[in-house]
Design a protein around this nucleic acid. Sequence first.
DNA 1: CGTGAAAAAGAACGATCATTCGTTTTTATT
DNA 2: AATAAAAACGAATGATCGTTCTTTTTCACG
Lengths: 202, 202
Amino acid sequence: MAKLSPETLRERSDHILDAAGRCFARAGFHRTTMQDICREAEVSPGALYIYFTSKEALIAGICERERAEFANRFAQMPVGSDLMGALANLGRQFLEDPLHRRLLCVEVGIEATRNPKVGEIQKSVEGFIRGSFHDLFTKLEAEGRIAPTFDIDTVVDAFMTIADGMLWRSAVDEKFNGDVVLPPLLQAIAALLRPVADEAKP
Amino acid sequence: MAKLSPETLRERSDHILDAAGRCFARAGFHRTTMQDICREAEVSPGALYIYFTSKEALIAGICERERAEFANRFAQMPVGSDLMGALANLGRQFLEDPLHRRLLCVEVGIEATRNPKVGEIQKSVEGFIRGSFHDLFTKLEAEGRIAPTFDIDTVVDAFMTIADGMLWRSAVDEKFNGDVVLPPLLQAIAALLRPVADEAKP
DNA sequence: CGTGAAAAAGAACGATCATTCGTTTTTATT
DNA sequence: AATAAAAACGAATGATCGTTCTTTTTCACG
């Protein structure tokens, strides 16, 4: 006989995941203890283990959620008439959310190289993001709005390298200032995509 | 009464550091045990603790050594007549050394946000690298060999962001291929530095 | 060689951690 | 309200890890 409504169950599970996310970002996956997470979530070990069967499951849960949110944000990227403006907005959007989330992305990226389960999830995130940009750039090239020197696959590779660089630096360098690096990076990306002259305001 | 010559002492300490580096790159700082390192170095815990007083000291030792090697390579960067070619070589050089070293760089970068001692070392590495490029770009601008749109500080920031992106991706993405992304990234960097037309062969 | 101190070994210790389990509390249903 | 099962609690457990300590080995010097 079920006791808690599915919504409540989901709510508590999310609550624990939030707490775990904060702890993981603060100390890394392998230096946060289950007690840390219990304290942060104000929940007993016994309760925690009802929602997540192990620390591994908690890590995987965090990754899954990151994937969902990533996918969401990318999916609704406004592909307006001003490409570089849209990319600038997207970049700003990422740099605006809390440091702890960006640290978590980096943490997940590293964990993915060592934990097969996380690796799978990460690979699917990567695939989604890469696919989104690939489709976008392909469409833009077909429409004659960009004229890149390299083929789209290569352009996407380079673009994602620059984006990851920004993510990494924003998470790791305390002196990082998005307002300063974003303009030159957009200039560099523009050299990659080569938007055609009348792209800005058609 | 000293028993082992300073060279032997240094040799053994380096040997342990090598082993620790491999372990740390493989499993991360906090998932490698002292026993792992002992096994890899073929040394007993008792012996290890003669050379390094704690796991922390071992981590710090790894960072220090990374710093020294980084500094070395950057210091002897050939600033020939072909700037973009020199940068391409530098990039290739980094992508050529073993994955385990690049993973270690990433690991150190994250650890630096959480471990004050490592943070200090990392900050000094960063400062050195940034300084090297700042000096180089400043000189090149004064000589009229580059004409960047942004001021040198900003250009260095953006440049290092792209470089870090490459380091990160090369360490974390198993499908990463330096030969593919290097050319477009150099194109992007060229848009940042804007080398003057006759830079290539004067 | 013999010696004494440094170096290495590796079993053992104490602390910490993930996880479990017996008990108590909560809550949807009667 | 009464109840029965789910949910939560938190002390206990067993495993693991960093570190220490006692013993053995190695080695420069007499």
